[in-house]
Design a protein around this nucleic acid. Structure first.
Lengths: 225, 225
DNA sequence: AAGAGTTGTATTGGATGCAATCAAGCATTA
DNA sequence: TAATGCTTGATTGCATCCAATACAACTCTT
């Protein structure tokens, strides 16, 4: 009658998923940087499992674009060159405004207010990690209401894959006193309040485009991952 | 000194990838239909391997959206409901025109001519499978010149995930004498010859949109996969 | 007779061990 | 001295075995 020893630790088939989740968090948090080697056995030991669920996890993350696998050779944290990163931003530039527009009629007033609070909170923080987290929260929350599983999943993956470069860029150029990010966020909130889907779409497209161009102007970011 | 027995059959770490490729082909060819169960051991026996590389293959295909895995329960060929399928078409509607526009200045005249030949060949075939194959070839060839790895890979995945429904739709409504598909294809070829990126983009967006609406008008397609 | 609990079987998940492969360092030779 | 071939250690890939889970059929109770 297989009673679980403790309250948790009982889902048999979730070992790979659990490892994938932890490794994903570690990569997104910057504890592994792009290009660094991942050894199966290290992970297995670190997470208290055998190499088998580790390989499952690596496969999942490979599919999400966070890990690169080479047969018989090993796994690395995925690394983008400037061109690939620009591509992903261009994809975001087309998908996210559309996704936002689907959310415009569905967001509750209170939810829009909360977005405004997030935008304000970002303005008044000096901590890079908190800035990144709030930014992610702001955008993903503005996408979360519509029931569009596919689009939301694709969007999250795009954010995840570009996260390391956003982090380095923010670290390097955050203090230069450009308030465009915040202005754009507040413009989006205002458009949402007006229920102005097209307006929100355009500001967001410009927002992502501006970020893409900034990043393209500083290719040195990709040497310092 | 591990000499390969024959000229092929030597890449050690490709067993999972090989199985994934064959299973992917089988799904795209319609030999497995959406919702049908996939038993690990069956596949292992069919492809002459153990269950381990099969599990690798299933993970890969899950990531591509072709297979659905449930822990401790099993694997099924992925099945879309009408809303999900419509979402994927809307994503295509935004990505593919952009991808095509990147290819406009790069396609050689001869390559555009070949696209024209493909469009004509489609007009004169009665075979559904050949129609589907030529259609896929036409579009993917028009995207293949630009060096945009990410976008191309995403596009192929979107095509793959919607393939079964395109097949059923074509089988059911192909003979109704609507020539829009072919007109649009030829319009695209003409725009490419003129090097008219925006024109090509617009026709393609309309092409995908029209297909999406047709599919939405016939939800019974999703009962007959 | 209907429902809940129980048992049995089929199938998946995970651990271990061995084989195949790769990469780096050493020896050898031109 | 530099380049090439070989050998060895480290690491991944795969097969087999065992454990855990889910589902269905059955039994027992009310």
């Amino acid at each position: 009658m297989t009673e679980p020893t403790t309250v948790s630790e009982r889902t048999h088939g979730a070992s790979g998923a659990r490892i994938a989740a932890e490794l994903r968090d570690a990569i997104l948090a910057g504890r592994y940087s792009p290009g660094s080697r991942i050894r199966q056995e290290d992970l297995a030991e670190a997470y208290g499992a055998s190499r088998l669920p580790v390989r499952d996890a690596l496969r999942m993350l490979e599919a999400e674009g966070l890990v690169t696998l080479v047969a018989n050779t090993g796994a690395w944290v995925a690394k983008l060159n400037p061109a690939e990163c620009e591509e992903l931003y261009q994809v975001r530039e087309r998908l996210e405004p559309f996704l936002l527009s689907l959310n415009v009629p569905l967001l509750q007033e209170e939810q829009i207010d909360e977005l405004g609070l997030l935008a304000s909170a970002m303005e008044h923080t000096d901590d890079v990690e908190r800035f990144l987290q709030l930014d992610r929260e702001f955008h993903l929350a503005s996408y979360a209401v519509a029931e569009t599983t596919m689009l939301q999943e694709m969007t999250v993956r795009l954010w995840n894959r570009t996260q390391p470069y956003r982090r380095v860029y923010t670290r390097m150029f955050r203090a230069e006193g450009d308030h465009s990010v915040h202005y754009e966020h507040h413009l989006i909130v205002a458009a949402l309040h007006r229920r102005d889907a097209e307006g929100a779409e355009r500001v967001l497209a410009g927002h992502i485009r501006r970020t893409r161009l900034e990043l393209a102007r500083h290719p040195e970011v990709f040497d310092l991952v």
